[in-house]
Design a protein around this nucleic acid. Sequence first.
DNA 1: TAAGTCACG
DNA 2: ACGTACGTGACTTAT
Length: 595
Amino acid sequence: MIDVATFERWMEAVERAELVCLDTETTSLDPMEARIVGISLAIEPGRACYIPLAHRYPGAPDQLAQDAVFGRLAPWLADPAKKKLGQNAKYDQHVFANYGLPLAGVAHDTLLQSYVLEAHRPHDMDNLAWRHLGVKTVTYAEMVGKGARQIAFDQVSLEDATTYSAEDADVTLQLHRHLYPRVAAVPKLDHIYTAIEIPVREILFRMEREGVMIDTALLGAQSRELGEKVMALEQQAYALAGQPFNLSSPRQLGEILFQKMKLPAPRKTATGQPSTDEDVLTELAADYPLPKLLLEHRALSKLKSTYTDKLPQMVNKRTGRVHTTFSQATAVTGRLASSEPNLQNIPVRTAEGRRIREAFIAPPGHVVVSADYSQIELRIMAHLSGDPALVAAFHEGADIHKATAADIFGVPVSAVTSDQRRYIKAVNFGLIYGMGAFGLSQQLGIERNAAQQFIDKYFQRYPGVAQYMQHTREFARTHGYVETIFGRRLWLPDINAGGGPRRAGAERAAINAPMQGTAADLIKLAMIAVQDWLDCEKLGTKLVLQVHDELVFEVPAVELDHVRAELPKHMTGVAELTVPLVVDVGVGPNWERAH
DNA sequence: TAAGTCACG
DNA sequence: ACGTACGTGACTTAT
């Protein structure tokens, strides 16, 4: 058990150390709510300490005074010149922020090192320790248990917590010494890590901390409205089915549709059950009334349960705003992921869905600004393939789908029909996903041969694209990975090891990953450039959301003209491709109107 | 905890 | 004969 004098000696060593690993133990996994139970520090492999502060169980020993410890730590925590290391330090940064303690100088994060080296493998401490150091660590679950018998960390005995937590800090420091040299050995990976992921980590912290404002009253009204519509649809469905049943149960629904009512079942799911998904119901809706009703019910109950009911519950009591968590090491392509709540899948495709975006608002005197990259992945395909005709189409065409349709059908842009445009748009998207003729035929509802003809025609007109696809497959097979323009590596273990279907899947992922991954690199660079600009000019504009090709800001009305004029160039200036990068900016009182 | 479904880019 | 367009997260049902 650490005493005041020992703590002081540790702090002196900490202040002298070149890099210190920092780890907090807390009462909650929710970063905005977590309270500190103890802090561990490691200054070199084998030298770590645990500072217990708030273990609360019968017979728990007296611990150091929290205020005194925080007071001694604060200047060091806040000093950007004192370099810190963590494993997912964004979480610990929130925890300290919950006490008003700024944390600066996070120079390294083993989570991000592992992500840059091996995005496709697990990045939790226990996995990393075993894989890279051959060490079996005590897991968090072993400390606190799981399920109903789980306890909060402040109930863990001081002895156990000390062993566990000091080990975590120690192992993290060892991992850093093992992983960072491997990152640094590849200049492009070092650049991804040092110039992209580490700065983005800080920006994500600020975005999460800021949160986003939502109109809970509006969502509440929408919930009531949706609830009434959903109930009415249920009654109508019962009448058509001749009995009540649970519309949300695919199994019960399958029994009603395909056994009782004897509708033809077009497809089965992976487990052999007849599928009742949207495609199936849409097909059946052409001939029967019930499937149409079910589609409407599905759409509305999804909006209600996932969005209008849930989002108001996610409003933080202290801040009055919604704070998502952005995962920086989840998506294998380099994209971010958003959770609890996911603010990257707020509805936009239907009119009813878009109403939910009306509830994403700005505080008084502010507006919502949305800036998105136009056709970013297709532009990256043009750049990567270097296909002269596709590159030219981007230099000329305001509407790329129309421009490519004109190219492929050999007609002037003004003569492209809406069907021609729709078909080529599907091909353009499909190519990014590595689709085949079957997929395209399904998507367009046409014969497989006709779909194949579209693809053939496309590759004839844009042979560079066909070549690029082939080259990418070969590169993936040779190296076991593909890479983005910036050299982010995307590993594909199944590209050689897998059997038929797995390997085919890996080939499609290989086609998609450089485009999706480069887009992710570009928008991360944009976040850094934009945040640097906002900080330098001391603007009050806040970046609040990132949705893969879009950045959403809360902008003081007085800054609107300036932001609108300057923002696009900071986003388009992050790279010089063979095609122009284009950013569209929208402004409104809410996210819907800013689109 | 798995399966099915569906929201987004 | 088989599966078939990439990458995510969350909700509901059912075991």
